[in-house]
């Protein structure tokens, strides 16, 4: 087993050709890649890690049925544990998922083209149990928010749902890949929704728009890849999460800017009705003819325009942004803008 370095251009080319024959590629979020070569230097097996997701695992067909896949997965798992990642996921094809079942992975959900698996025996069941521990009133509505950070637009959406439904479940995207950390985002959502009494707030953890269910939300991907991932993410929601909470509506804000999110909403309207869930798309809230969006808020933070900012975010978010606790994230936004990483 050897590590394939970023700088090894030739090795990477060889690997890409090898992966192509399996209809696989190297996603942008991959952090480490390993290959195993035969005595004549040809790649016979490979596997990669993106934080807690094992990806692009393939074994040359002449060696399939040997223990190479076991060796590869053991190695990747050990690497993840050493980095402190213990809840692991595998994204694979329906025809290969059995092989991973023998290695202790459990299927969470599947589409025609992909299967999502995890190494925890009751990982997903525990997630459902934890959110069910809280009060349950059905029928209810579901909303998923990244809230980076929480704005009046988010509040408007949740308030609307809370007026039209007996209960609302809000899931905060838990992947820590946004400017504001997951804890910051969760806290601002909690504070901002405090006055709505029929709303409970959950952590989406690994099961709603995460690097496992929907990696392209965080990295750019091809349209067909995005489509498959959105299907998987939404099937998990529609098939498993929603029924256990009695959710029969999902509220979503119209997405005028972001292509990936717009695609996600589009798939949502096609997929969720199959599970008896109505998708309600709400026009974005406007203030003085301008749509409220979290990216606008981040821009205003960069520009330091407190007056305008005050109009777009609830009091709780505004106060957080003025407090010393937010200094870290404000510096991060400024740095990102100066390096032109944000648009």
């Amino acid at each position: 087993m050897q590590k394939l370095f970023e700088s090894d251009v030739k090795g990477r080319q060889a690997l890409e050709i090898f992966l192509e024959s399996f209809d696989l590629s190297l996603d942008q979020d991959i952090e480490k890649t390993y290959v195993k070569k035969s005595s004549d230097g040809k790649i016979i097996a490979t596997g990669s890690i993106a934080k807690n997701v094992l990806k692009s695992i393939a074994v040359d067909k002449h060696y399939q049925g040997s223990s190479l896949i076991n060796e590869m997965v053991s190695y990747l798992m050990e690497e993840c544990y050493q980095m402190g990642e213990t809840h692991l996921f595998i994204y694979t094809k329906p025809e290969s998922y059995k092989a991973f079942e023998f290695l202790g992975f459990k299927k969470i959900t599947e589409t025609n083209r992909v299967v999502l698996m995890e190494n925890k025996i009751n990982g997903f069941q525990d997630f459902l149990k934890n959110i069910k521990d809280k009060e349950l009133t059905s029928p209810s509505a579901g909303i998923v928010l990244n809230a980076n950070p929480f704005t009046k637009g988010h509040y408007y959406l949740v308030k609307r749902a809370s007026e039209e439904n007996p209960w609302v479940h809000v899931f905060v995207v838990w992947e820590n890949q946004s400017t504001f950390s997951n804890v910051e985002r969760y806290n601002l959502v909690s504070k901002g929704l405090k006055d709505l009494k029929n709303v409970s707030i959950h952590k989406g953890l690994n099961y709603i728009i995460s690097a496992a269910t929907f990696p392209s939300y965080f990295i750019s991907g091809k349209d067909e890849v995005i489509k498959e991932q959105t299907k998987l993410d939404l099937k998990l929601f529609g098939d498993k999460i929603a029924p256990s909470l009695g959710i029969n509506k999902r509220y979503v804000g119209k997405e005028p800017f972001n292509n990936t999110t717009a695609k996600y909403n589009e798939t949502m309207k096609k997929v969720l009705p199959d599970y008896g869930i109505e998708v309600i798309e709400i026009e974005r809230k406007k203030i003085e003819d301008q749509i409220i969006s979290a990216s606008t808020v981040r821009r205003l933070i960069y520009e330091g325009d407190l007056e305008k900012l005050k109009c777009l975010v609830p009091k709780s978010t505004f106060e957080y942004l003025k407090s010393p606790a937010s200094q870290g994230v404000i510096n991060k936004i400024k740095k990102d803008y100066n390096e032109k990483k944000l648009v």
Partner: peptide, 20 residues
Amino acid sequence: NKEAIAGTLESSDIQITISK
């Protein structure tokens, strides 16, 4: 103190994961 793993998934071996 933490979740830990030992062993491999290769033939004649056993992979043990321990958590609290």
